[in-house]
Design a protein around this nucleic acid. Structure first.
Length: 214
DNA sequence: CCATGATCATTA
DNA sequence: TAATGATCATGG
């Protein structure tokens, strides 16, 4: 297991700015949707590889490391706008009830994020040009963080008061608790898979990260 | 099985 | 286009 510092990861990634990630994915044997399947996470995987990390689809690095995220951008008017929200981390009911913001995975990930902007060219991301690689450090005293913490606390309070099923993507100013997970029907049991949720960064937050970073 | 990588689908 | 909910592949 190589150790790749955040600075090194960024340096590695910057070499690929302007390139089409799909070509790189082919070269590195990352499965894209081309196999007839839909691997929606392929961009994330390829970026992890390019950064010099082990291809680790599993648990995200905890705490000591950093988070590598990619977001699709597109043009609105003449500006670059994030197309989608950004998944931060799964919500674990028990942990959310017990942990305050600064002990949460949400904070652990947000505070050390490495952010990759990728151009979106329509459904299936036929090509995916790497636009920008950046990083951002949050501090516990940032006003923005205080507001994000307020969202976290709100969602946490709602979970405690009304239960997991009362959560919705409508909550939160900067982050939201949307559904995320396997979804669909379990072919073995024929039953619906349980709904799970994750914290997402709203587009405004993504845009802010994009603009505030260098 | 489940969390992680994220995007797709639907409805305005 | 925007917002929210649903969904897919992967690998430990």
């Amino acid at each position: 297991m190589k150790i790749v510092t955040r600075a090194t990861a960024i340096k590695n990634l910057k070499k690929y700015i302007g390139q089409d990630l799909r070509q790189l994915a082919k070269k590195l044997k990352i499965t894209t949707y081309e196999t007839g399947k839909q691997n929606k996470g392929w961009k994330g995987l390829i970026l992890e590889l390019l950064a010099g990390l082990e291809n680790n689809v599993s648990k995200a690095p905890n705490g000591l490391s950093y988070e590598l995220k990619s977001v699709s951008f597109y043009h609105v008017k003449d500006k670059l706008i994030p197309k989608e929200t950004m998944a931060i981390t799964m919500i674990n009911q028990k942990e959310l009830k017990e942990q305050e913001f600064f002990k949460s995975h949400v904070w652990e990930k947000l505070k050390s994020i490495v952010f990759c902007a990728v151009m979106w060219h329509g459904k299936n991301s036929d090509n995916a040009e790497l636009l920008k690689v950046t990083s951002l450090d949050f501090s516990e005293t940032d006003d923005l963080i205080k507001e994000i913490k307020a969202d976290y606390d709100f969602i946490r309070a709602k979970l405690i008061k009304k239960g997991f099923s009362s959560l919705t993507g409508k909550d939160g100013k900067w982050i939201q608790a949307r559904t995320k997970g396997q979804g669909g029907i379990n072919p073995k049991t024929g039953k619906r898979r349980p709904i799970t949720r994750a914290f997402y960064a709203r587009k405004e937050l993504v845009a802010k990260i994009f603009n505030d970073s260098k």
